[in-house]
Computed example of a mutant assay.
Amino acid sequence: MTDETRIAYDTVAEAYAELLHDHLDGSPWDRSMLTTLAELVGTAGPVGDLGCGPGRLTGHLAGLGLDVFGVDLSPGMIAVARRTHPGLRFEVGSLEVLDLEDGSLAGALAWYSLIHTPPARLPRVAAELARVLAPGGCLLTAFQVGDERRHITHAYGHDVSIEAFRLRPEHVTEWLTDAGLVLEAQLVRQPQPPHEKTPQAYLLAKKPG
């Protein structure tokens, strides 16, 4: 499934970046949550945008004053991110095995980057996110709410083959707390048409210390 996800996002990278480049302009909830993360982290240390895609949120967080870099599974997405944000660092990598030192991040963003991992493997991802956070570090994650597994065959104008999972906030909270993080805040909002069909969740968790 990892290869399937990589291939799909390599295929749509250019179209994805073009279609979503100004998406934050119409998403006050998204901007508010990202600003909250930026205010909580401040100048405490580096922030990883983990599952950064073409770097649109990496660039936004940099504009909010954070020392931020991006990691994504898709080389195609990373190529777009490097071209679009030449002053920022982007690396190819997997959320399940991050090439980062223990406790090296003051903050982490997992923005719709958990949704292609089967739920049975998400406790491992949660443990990896917790591992790379420094004591006192913050994690912000966002995802679609639900229980469904969907097979996507067309996205951003391209034929693809990829699995996507909607998640329950209580399940994600359980995985994060089992990994040693403490839930600080949870927000579930209604979908914003025409692009969203399900409620969207944001969870903010912190590593004790």
Rank of each mutant, 00 (worst) to 15 (best):
G137P: 08
D25V: 13
Q192D: 10
S104E: 04
T153M: 02
A164W: 13
R166N: 12
T153I: 04
T35H: 13
I162L: 15
W111N: 05
D30G: 03
T153L: 10
P193A: 10
E170Q: 13
Q192L: 13
Q186I: 07
W111V: 00
G26Y: 02
H116Y: 07
E14L: 13
H171W: 15
R82Q: 14
L167T: 07
Q192Y: 02
T11D: 12
V160T: 00
L19D: 14
Q186V: 12
H154R: 14
R149N: 01
V145C: 07
I7S: 14
S94Q: 00
W111G: 00
L133W: 02
V80P: 03
H60T: 01
L122I: 12
Q144A: 14
L187E: 15
L167E: 05
C52E: 01
A130Q: 13
A106I: 01
A62H: 15
G45K: 12
S161V: 03
V12H: 10
V188C: 05
G45D: 04
I162W: 04
H23Y: 13
I152R: 01
A120F: 02
V97R: 15
C52G: 06
T35W: 06
G42D: 06
R124A: 14
S94G: 00
P75T: 01
L24S: 00
L19W: 11
G65S: 06
L37I: 09
E4P: 09
R124Q: 12
D10G: 08
G42T: 01
S94Y: 00
D3Y: 08
V68E: 01
P199E: 09
T58P: 09
G65V: 07
A110W: 01
R150S: 11
A106L: 05
G107A: 11
P54W: 07
K197A: 14
A130K: 14
F90Y: 04
H21P: 00
R189T: 11
S161M: 03
G136Y: 02
D147R: 14
L122T: 09
D22M: 00
L100I: 01
A79E: 15
G103P: 06
L100S: 02
L187P: 00
A17H: 09
L40G: 01
D72P: 11
L129W: 13
F165A: 03
V182L: 13
L98C: 06
A15K: 07
T5A: 14
M77R: 05
V47T: 08
Q186C: 12
G26C: 03
A13G: 06
E174P: 02
L187M: 06
P169R: 03
R149V: 09
G63P: 04
Y16M: 07
T43S: 14
V160D: 01
A155I: 03
A81P: 08
I78R: 08
D30M: 09
A130F: 14
D67Q: 15
Y16N: 02
Y202M: 06
H85A: 05
R149D: 07
Q144R: 15
G26H: 12
K197N: 10
D72V: 08
R82H: 03
T5I: 14
E39A: 14
V41N: 08
M77D: 06
P208W: 02
L98T: 05
S94L: 00
G45V: 07
E101D: 15
S32I: 00
P199T: 07
T35V: 12
A108M: 02
G59Q: 11
I162H: 01
L34Q: 06
